[in-house]
Each structure stands twice: as C-alpha cells, then as structure tokens.
Nucleic acid binder design. Structure first.
Lengths: 164, 164
DNA sequence: CGCAATTGTTGTCGTCAACAACAATCTTCC
DNA sequence: GGAAGATTGTTGTTGACGACAACAATTGCG
C-alpha cells in the first residue's frame, strides 16, 4: 500500500563512499506526485491487469472486449468506422479481427454497396459469448469499486466522460 | 485525443445504400460507457501524447522523466531500488539508463559497499536539464487542467493517490 | 566454508501505437 | 466517360513497453 506520502526527502549521504540502501517504500517521489499522468498510468496498469485476470478464463483482453462490444451494439460497421470510434489503428484492427474471426466470434461480410469494405457482425456464438464477457466485465468493475470506492469510481467516470 | 483531423467522410448513405455507413461520432458505445478501464485508457493515451508533445523539444518521454525525477530526489539509489519504486522491470531500466547515460544526464557509480550495484546520480548537466524538464512538465500539467478542469484534476489525483 | 539470494545484464516474446506502402475500389471533377 | 485523387483493407516496419528467463559477479547467511 505504501502510503507515507508525507515523506519529503529521504536522501542519505552517498556522494563518494558508502551507498545508502533505502527500501523502495521510503523513496520520495517528489515532483512525480502531483503529476496526473503518473497516477493515471499506474492506475491503468492495475485496472488492465485486473481486467485480464478477471476475464482470463475466457481469454479476452480489454481491446478485444471493446471491439466486440462496439460491433455487438452496431452491427454492420466497417473496420474503418470501428477503428475510428475506438481510437485503434485500422492496421491493428486487422489482426484483432483475424483473431476474433478465427474464434468464430465475429464475421466479416463483404459489403455490396462498397466492395472495398467489410460489414462486421457478431456470430450467434459471438452473441452468447459476449453476454458472458459482459458479466465478467461487470465483476471486474466491482473490483474497481472495491479498490477506489463506489463514489470515487462514479466521479472518475464523470470526470473522464469526455474521452469515451 | 480522438484526433480532430478525422473529420472525414461526412457521407452517410451511398446511392443505392444497403449498408448504412455511420460517422464515427454516432456509433453507440453501449456497455463500454460505464467501464472505468476504457475511460482511463483513452485518457492515459491523451495525457501521454500531450506529455510527449510538450516535452518534445527536449526529447524526454514520461518514463524517462519519472526515472530522472526519482534519481534527482534520491541520489545514490541502486537500479533495483529505482525499478521497484517506479514499477519498472530492472531489465528495462538498464536500457533506459543506457540512454540517459549516453546523453550525460545520469551517471552510474560503482558502489564500494556492494560491488554488485550502481549508485545512480544526476550529472551537473542532468540537474540543470531536469529543472527545464520540470518546467515543461508543469506546462503539460496545465494542459491537463485546461482539458478536465482544475478541480477535476485535483479530485483525480486524490482518487488515484493510492497508486503512486 | 558452501549455498541461496541479490544485482545488473542480455536476450526473447508479445502487446501496442505510429507510419509507410500497396492493390482494389470508390468519388470527384473535367 | 475517363483520369486523378481519396478511401478501405492489408502487409510490413519501427520503437516503446511489460513479462520472463538465463547468466556472471557478488553478497549474505546458515
């Protein structure tokens, strides 16, 4: 937990001779505390690890989940549209869909109105699978609540609503 | 950042129009909204990009900045201690320090008390450089304030304080 | 002393963002 | 109607990053 945030300057003389070995929990972060990016990075690592662990039994990672969710809610989207909406490179989405298609969760249907693009749909298997994924994702979300508190999670979502 | 330049393809329905092409901003996220992880991921991408851009003139990335800050505040630390404190693999820290040492910002001093380890220090050049980095980082932090609001940034730091 | 643990290092593997190039196809404009 | 330009999906490369495994040198402990 390492909460002694009030520590200021734990430096011990080391300039030439003996090296002062300090425990990791005694090291001052100084300017790092107060940087939103640092806190957000650490939190994002934690939250992704919990997501990956909670959905480990179904082998679904956060990005895969977001793709499935968007396709499920908007059948027929093109790869370009999905990529743009989720902030994923379309080059990257190709591999993601290759994987999901091999697992029979998604299918690419050649669009007749624009033969360059594919209309993305969930398979029947994908629909039922996504339902299970959503239950597990909800469980993960409860872990977040346990970690930072229900009210804080709500506030967090509210603060960051503009980025979704 | 959900690039503002992606204002493309305002077309919505092709002439024969079987497949409905929708603009990216009209796509429903459904279950994705309400997931803390998704919002945090998008926010983290935005904040890192702004950090990288704001400190682009000095070519310092977030991880490099965190390493320099910790060493600056705690001279003489071993690589192990820095890695543990920042949640970086010690294997990864090797390359980070190689780069920073080549740029004459950091020096590894062989510890006499434990000849396995190195005591990490900023060079004189590193000290003055870090001062400049901190000014630019503060500017970046103001961008965050502009984006989500001063009060929200404070609240965010408070909520995520346990992860630093 | 001898053996386990630690430290820095090297290497591999997989994820992810950012680009670049390309063929097929569509749109636009002359 | 047709050439020129843009878009879509695809392949490939690069670099940052996290996770692991193995290794030599060194330390610490039984």
């Amino acid at each position: 937990m390492t909460t002694p945030a009030t520590r200021t300057s734990p430096r011990k003389r080391t300039s030439n001779g003996l090296t002062a070995q300090i425990g990791a929990d005694e090291i001052g972060l100084d300017a790092l505390i107060g940087h939103a990016g640092y806190a957000v990075r650490r939190f994002q690592i934690w939250i992704f690890q919990d997501f990956i662990r909670t959905l480990g039994e179904v082998d679904i990672r956060p990005t895969q989940y977001s793709v499935l969710t968007v396709i499920g809610a908007n059948p027929g989207l093109s790869q370009m549209a999905v990529a743009k909406r989720l902030g994923i490179e379309r080059a990257r989405l190709v591999h993601l869909l290759d994987s999901l298609e091999q697992r029979k969760l998604v299918k690419r249907i050649k669009s007749k109105s624009d033969r360059r693009s594919h209309a993305l749909h969930l398979t029947a298997q994908g629909e039922t699978a996504l339902a299970k994924f959503k239950r597990l994702a909800a469980e993960h979300e409860r872990h977040v609540e346990d970690k930072i508190g229900k009210a804080n999670r709500e506030r967090l979502l509210q603060i960051l609503a503009g980025f979704t």
